[in-house]
Design a protein around this nucleic acid. Structure first.
Lengths: 344, 344
DNA sequence: TTGTAAGCGTTATCAA
DNA sequence: TTGATAACGCTTACAA
């Protein structure tokens, strides 16, 4: 039999509520009593039963992290930081990966009931959702590295991300300034209405501003039967593009992992980077740095985003009001995978 | 107010126990009653409260996955597969990352009490533990891609992994057969008593069997202040090694990620792979394939290991007895990062 | 086959 | 500052 609060109470010769007060740092308790109880607890290695606590407390101290599109290491990094923050706040956290096909709002709704969630962190996904559906999410939530397009006024939420369109513009513009005029885009899934769309818009805008007309045949979507944002996806799409003998001098992949896959496809074709093709990615992962050649990318301030997200979530849990989200600045990191073709 | 089992009972005009029977697929219930109850449940979108269930059930239906050394994508892959299997079995799962410095057995012990765990999956870690300490783990557990060195007879557990020593022998022997005689080893943390040690032994054995004497100065440990098994760790260790102007023709990193880091260090030095140095990794990650040059590695059958682990865990939960672990065969995958130097 | 009622281990309310 | 005691929502004897 496990030790329960009753056992501790008996051992200390006090009532269970006093023990409860000691555990939960309630103010009205004699410091000496508390001290004695805590000692006994440590001695017998007592750990309160979480289920019972969560059952009794109107709301649990549990936060869910829902990750869609796990293949992107960007999310692994984010999850780690978020986990640390949640633990620091003495909350439990619950990680759930969501299939590409699953509906993350449905999952969230179930989870809220089942686990009496206190808050939710969405990583990836959350595009395409009616306001009614979103309105059903009663718990506060944050979106990390994403933004919601149709602001739902009935929800308590906040978004933390870079300005995907602006950053996408930045990196495309960088390629243009290097003299590239035919820039292939390895974009998001067909019908993407989220960051994929924003980055696409940024790309187009940059081209236009540089007096380059958009060639739709250079804009490629992810392959749907392969994990999104993955190396393999970048590889396959790039291979197809190369097979078509299209003319272009640069490739912009909307994630570093896709960029790596694209590089491999180029190498397999017997071409060189950056001599034959310049390649840029997006995210700023270590993987891009360690690749050979190291890949020019747009770094997202992952750590800052993670911290801000969790802080906001806790504030919303406390105040029950939405807090302002924030747009972070990305950073263009120029590396070996790109070169100027101005004076060639 | 959330819908509870009582509400459903009232709506259906039955007792709560009947509803409970319907939910939990108990045998003694009228199929029609059950049908009707299930309809009502769906209609009102009722989801049973997990905490209440877990509280009532002597043991919850929760399994914890404890990951130590998160930087290795090998574990991400494993976790995903394990997650899927756990869900298929209608269990909840709980992922916890463990700091390099934290004691995973302590964490497990706490968790068992706090969450009334039904079983545990250990990924990474679990080296160096006294039998007494292990004996405290009352819940069944499995080790994936690892093995316990001092079999603890008091525990219900099983191990699923490759034979690290044998596979390490295999890949080292491969390098020897290619004509390499001075092979640097990028090994595990100092004092590692787990897979790191086994792989080291395999390496030494292969050298000896090929008539090559072991040069301790070519055996390098991970840097402790950097995430273990990471690209960065491989990079830093390799850089140090290169700076020492040691003579060697091949590098064997005990993980693919370290191998990638090592490659980068070599490239930064202005050297070529495989012309100047052959490089091999271990794990068989996609990252090794997509690297340029693609990296020769030893593939672990991750999917098979994950599945076997979970199946074993559920069997142990049911039977309350240890089941036999299994040793899987690895597969040497020859790629571009290695070359024969026999006739040079 | 079904319903009633007693807990599971906590926290919160209220009275002492 | 404390201690009974009533929930929290569910499962499971036991009785009907």
């Amino acid at each position: 039999m496990e030790t329960t609060i009753k056992d501790i109470a008996k051992m200390c010769g006090v009532g269970v509520s006093t023990v409860s007060r000691a555990i939960n740092n309630h103010p009205d308790i004699n410091p000496k009593t508390k001290e004695f109880i805590m000692q006994t607890i440590n001695k017998y290695n007592y750990v309160p039963n979480n289920s019972a606590r969560n059952l009794k407390r109107i709301e649990s101290r549990t936060i869910a992290v829902l990750v869609k599109g796990i293949s992107n290491p960007l999310f692994s990094n984010l999850v780690q930081m978020i986990e640390k923050e949640i633990n620091r706040n003495k909350y439990s956290f619950f990680l759930q990966h969501i299939d590409e096909l699953q509906d993350e709002v449905e999952v969230a709704l179930e989870l809220i009931k089942e686990k009496r969630l206190r808050g939710i962190v969405f990583l990836g996904g959350l595009l395409f959702h009616s306001e009614e559906k979103l309105a059903q999410i009663k718990a506060p939530f944050v979106l990390s590295t994403m933004r919601i397009l149709t602001p739902a006024s009935n929800n308590i939420y906040a978004c933390f991300s870079v300005d995907d369109q602006k950053e996408s513009y930045k990196i495309t513009d960088y390629l243009c300034k290097q003299g590239h005029e035919r820039i292939a885009l390895l974009g998001a899934m067909k019908g993407d209405e989220s960051i994929g769309k924003l980055r696409l818009e940024g790309y187009k805008q940059a081209l236009r501003d540089n007096g380059i007309s958009v060639d739709e045949s250079l804009i490629r979507e992810m392959q749907e039967d392969i994990p999104s944002y993955s190396m393999q996806n970048g590889y396959e799409v790039m291979k197809t593009l190369l097979n078509e003998e299209k003319e272009f001098t640069a490739v912009y992949a909307i994630s570093d992992m896709q960029a790596i896959g694209a590089c491999k496809a180029i190498f397999k074709r017997g071409k060189k980077i950056p001599e034959d093709y310049s390649v840029v990615g997006f995210d700023g992962l270590a993987e891009a740095y360690f690749y050979e050649p190291s890949i020019t990318t747009l770094r997202q301030p992952v750590s800052a985003i993670a911290q801000a997200s969790i802080q906001a979530l806790f504030r919303m849990i406390k105040t029950k009001k939405s807090v302002a989200g924030r747009v972070f600045d990305g950073e263009l990191i120029e590396r070996e995978s790109t070169q100027s073709i101005r004076q060639v």
